[in-house]
Structures are given as C-alpha cells and as structure tokens.
Design a protein around this nucleic acid. Structure first.
Length: 475
RNA sequence: GCUCCCUUCGUCUAGCGGUCAGGACGCGGCCCUCUCAAGGCUGAAACACGGGUUCAAUUCCCGUAGGGAGCGCCA
C-alpha cells in the first residue's frame, strides 16, 4: 500500500521549455492518477547560474499549463544544513572520504585516460588515504562507491538496466567550498521528501546507478525510476534551452491553448490505442507510465496546430474567448468596438488554427480596412456589380432582426430577384464587407459586422466602382 | 575513446509469433459549397540491415549500421 509521490525538480537556469514541460506532465499525471502528491523542488545548488527570474518563469509556465503541485516549491539552497549533516555522517561511517586532488591533477588524469582510450574517471588515489591532510588543498568529499558487483534497477519505461560498479568512480558529493553537488542532493531530497517514483529525462539514466548506491549507503531502498525519452528538434538533435527548444510561454504567445499543448505533449511518447484527443481528465484516467515509448520523438508543429484548431473549434466559446482576449490587445484591436468575443469565436473558429490567427482575421469586424484586395476588387467590382450591390443595400436595409437567418434569406432573395447565382451576389458582397475574398459564410460575416458597418461598406464599394468608371472614361 | 539507451509511413504512433502492418498530422484526389475553412470519402507512404530461434518473425536472441545520452568541484 505504498503511497505514490512524484516530483518535478527543475534547475532554475532558464525558462520552462517544452521538453521539461513534458517531463513535468508525465510526473504530474502519474501522481494524479494514483491520487498521490506532486512535489515541486527547485534544484538551485549551482548558485552561479540559478536565478529567481528563472524560478518565476518556470512557475508561470506550469501555472499556464495547469500543472499544479501539492508541496513546495522546496529550494535546495535552503537545505544546506541538512546536506552537511548527512555528509558528516557518511564521513564518520567511512562511506565518504576527503580527496586532496587538485583540479589540475584531475585534469591531467582525465587527459591521460582519454589518450589511452579508456573511460575517464577518478582513480581513487585518496580512497584509502589515512595520512595527514595535504597542505594547501581544500579537499572535496567523495562518495566511496562499491568496487564490484552490479547495480540493477527496473525502469518503468526501459525495463531492466544493469551497470557494473567497475564503471563507476567515486563521485564528488561536496565541493571544496563545502557545498553539495547534484547527485548527492537529489538522493537526500528524494529520501527526505519520500519520493516513491522518480520520473525524469533519460539523460539521467547514467546517473541513476550512482544515485542508487548513495541511497543504499544512506540506508534506503531507491524509489522506482521511469526515464522518459527526450524530444528532438527538426534536425534530430536533442531539444534543449540552448538548442531550439521553445519556452512553453512562447506557445502562449503564439496563440495556443494550454489544453492543446498538454494534449500534444502527452501524445508525444505516449498513446492510448488510436485516440488522439484527450481532455486532462481522460489523460489522468488513461495514462500509465509504463506505456510511455522508449524512443525519442521529434516535435512536429503542424500536428500541434491541428490539435489547437480542434480545441478552438470544439471548446466552449466563452473559454476560448477568454484566451483570445490578450491576443486582441496585442493585435491592437479594441474588442468593445464590434461583435462580442464569444460571437467572434463562434464565427471564426473553423478557420483559425491559433488565437493569433483569429485575432488577425477579426480585424475587419472592428476596424476599417485601408484598401481592397486588388485581385478580388478587379474581379468582383466590375461595372455590372454596381446594381447588385445597390439591390443588396436596399434589401439589407430592410432586414430585421439582423440575424444569420434573415441575412441569409435576404441575400438569397436578392440573387433570385436578379436572376443570378448566389456566388455572383455573395462574393461581391463579401469583398465589399471585408475588403478581400476570404471570410466566413456571408450570413455569418454580415451578422458579425452589424447593420451599420455592412451598409456603409456597401456604399463604399458602390462609390469605388463609380470612381473607377469615371476615371476610366476620363482617360 | 569508453559505458548506457534507442530504432514501424516524412512526423507522432498501434502492434506485444500467424494482421491486406491499423490510426493521426501533413501531402494528393473526389464530394459538399457563396470565398476560405470545416466535414465526408479516398490515394500515395513504414517494420534500418544481417544472422539465428521457430512450422511461422515487425514481434524473441545476437551482431552491424545509424541516432541519442553520460563520462564536471553543472544540474
């Protein structure tokens, strides 16, 4: 009856990128599925590179995605006393020792080993040192790794992984300034925070055996591990902060809905039969860490766009409208000067894959356009279009109420009265209404535009045709 | 160089010894149609290679090739 507790442990050295977000998602889903807590821990022991701004950026990204945590955030820099205490006890038990090698000596050793074609590692020269401290060298503390035997663990995603202790060297657990290092703090924290399942990127697979040895030295059985594959960029290289990875907040800026990003991310490496679309509740219900794929996958923006479009089309219009709102602002559009955002979403959702696209396509409903699309105007505003537009103006002036049905009827009646196909009437009307050849169906377009704007724009088109005729006869 | 990990359409994936190798994105065609979309139907498109094991391998084992990661007083 072991309780499931998972954690996400980013180091605050930049924004939350898409790969980290997926790791967090998998870890979060595993906790949520089993009803256990999800812990957030900030691994900031590298004081040089850690910043509060990064912490904020990570929190912001998680909040936007809806990945809420139950405990934390815990900061490793606030736990230094605890680490010191554990190191001291390891030292006393002989499970760790002081090493007086200088960086230069280590560097020389590494070079020599590389030259000989063997795996560079510490040779244990101070492992059994029992003489006096070496003068002038602040020692580091190394973990006394077992010399023989294998470390074996059953990864929830990879299956059984075994590595010989002869491959492992005595890693440094405390720097010469006394601060602890990553492989050590992780273990202490996972023990203290009672983590049952460590779900992290597979770039940590190689660290796992050494961490397992530390767990045992500390008298604890290690948690269950699950190493999720990484996400590759279009070039097949691993996505990282310094290599093509985008911040999750970039996707916000690009007009994606968080549920679409989450859905895309969960399907990258995980699947449930042929299902493509998952609500968060469905993910929690159906997700199983052992179903995660082993192979790395490539990020595909086209599919994300498709998913985003699905969510825009099928989501609650009010919900979509809320997320659309900031993008209207960015596009310099005042939403109070035209249709409601909810009506706009319903009208445009089939033809906008992102909220940015939607905002852009909505502009003509709120602002006047400068000029007509050239091709569309020359094709649809020929002299014979003038009487059509005039008839439309008359017919639409009488429409009441101004609704999709009545507008559709009016346009259709006009076409019949003029003995023209609907296209011959609707298309000039469309260009008059929005300035170009593309828009939602004509009734929806006019409804969004409103009576006043519609009639004014028909007049504007009629004038345009008259002027053009006039200048044609002048010359 | 050494160690570990990975390998099904272009991409994401289903498959868990016997399938016409399925779905999705994207791409092509057709239908619908007032434009553009959306939607429907449809087409092209994959088991990296070589050995085994087996009556039978995409599936199990071993190599090879390719890719990724690690080998820090970074995390």
């Amino acid at each position: 009856m072991s309780v499931v507790r998972t954690r996400f442990a980013p180091s605050p050295t930049g924004f939350l990128h898409i790969g980290g977000a997926r790791t967090a998602l998998f870890s979060w889903l595993h906790a949520r599925k089993h009803g256990g807590p999800f812990v957030l821990r900030i691994e900031d022991t590298d004081r040089e590179r850690s910043t509060q701004a990064s912490v904020n950026a990570i929190l912001e990204g998680m909040t936007w995605l809806g990945l809420d945590y139950d405990e934390g955030p815990f900061y490793q820099t606030e736990r230094f006393d605890r680490y010191r205490e554990v190191i001291q006890s390891l030292l006393e038990q002989g499970k760790a020792y002081r090493c007086y090698c200088t960086r230069e000596e280590l560097e020389a050793l590494r070079e020599e080993q590389m030259r000989l074609g063997i795996k560079p590692r510490y040779d244990g020269r101070y492992r059994d040192h029992d003489g006096p401290p070496r003068e002038g060298v602040e020692p580091v503390i190394r973990f006394r790794n077992p010399l023989d035997g294998n470390v074996v663990f059953d990864d929830q995603i990879r299956g059984r992984i075994a590595i010989s202790n002869t491959e492992l060297d005595d890693l440094i657990i405390a720097r010469s300034d006394g601060t602890p290092t990553y492989n050590f703090t992780v273990v202490v924290d996972d023990i203290d925070m009672n983590i049952s399942h460590v779900i992290r990127g597979d770039d940590h697979i190689n660290n796992t055996p050494r961490q397992i040895n530390i767990f045992r030295a500390l008298g604890h059985e290690p948690p269950v591990f699950g190493h999720v594959p990484m996400i590759l960029g279009d070039d097949g290289k691993r996505l990282s902060k310094r290599h093509g990875a985008m911040s999750v907040m970039d996707y916000h800026d690009l007009g994606f809905l968080p549920e679409a990003v989450l859905n895309y991310l969960v399907r990258l490496g995980w699947s449930y039969g042929d299902q493509e679309v998952f609500s968060v509740d469905e993910m929690i219900e159906k997700f199983d860490i052992s179903d995660v794929n082993k192979a790395a996958s490539t990020f595909n923006t086209e599919k994300l766009l498709w998913l985003n479009h699905q969510y825009i089309m099928t989501g609650d219009p009010q919900h979509v409208a809320r997320y659309l709102s900031p993008h209207m602002g960015r596009a310099g559009i005042d939403p109070s000067d035209g249709p409601t955002l909810t009506d706009l979403v319903v009208g445009l959702r089939e033809r906008a894959r992102t909220l940015v696209e939607m905002a852009e396509k909505s502009r003509c409903f709120y602002q006047e356009f400068d000029q007509y699309d050239e091709k569309a105007a020359s094709k649809n505003f020929k002299p014979e279009a003038k009487p059509v537009l005039e008839s439309l103006h008359t017919a639409l002036s009488a429409v009441s109420p101004w609704s999709g049905e009545t507008l559709h009827q009016a346009v259709q009646d006009t076409a019949e009265a003029l003995d023209l196909k609907l296209g011959k009437v609707a298309q000039p009307l469309r260009v008059a209404a929005v300035g170009g050849p593309i828009s939602p169906s004509i009734d929806v377009t006019l409804e969004l535009l409103g009576r006043e704007r519609t009639l004014a724009r028909i007049q504007r088109a009629i004038h345009w045709i008259e002027q053009r005729q006039a200048s044609a006869s002048d010359s």
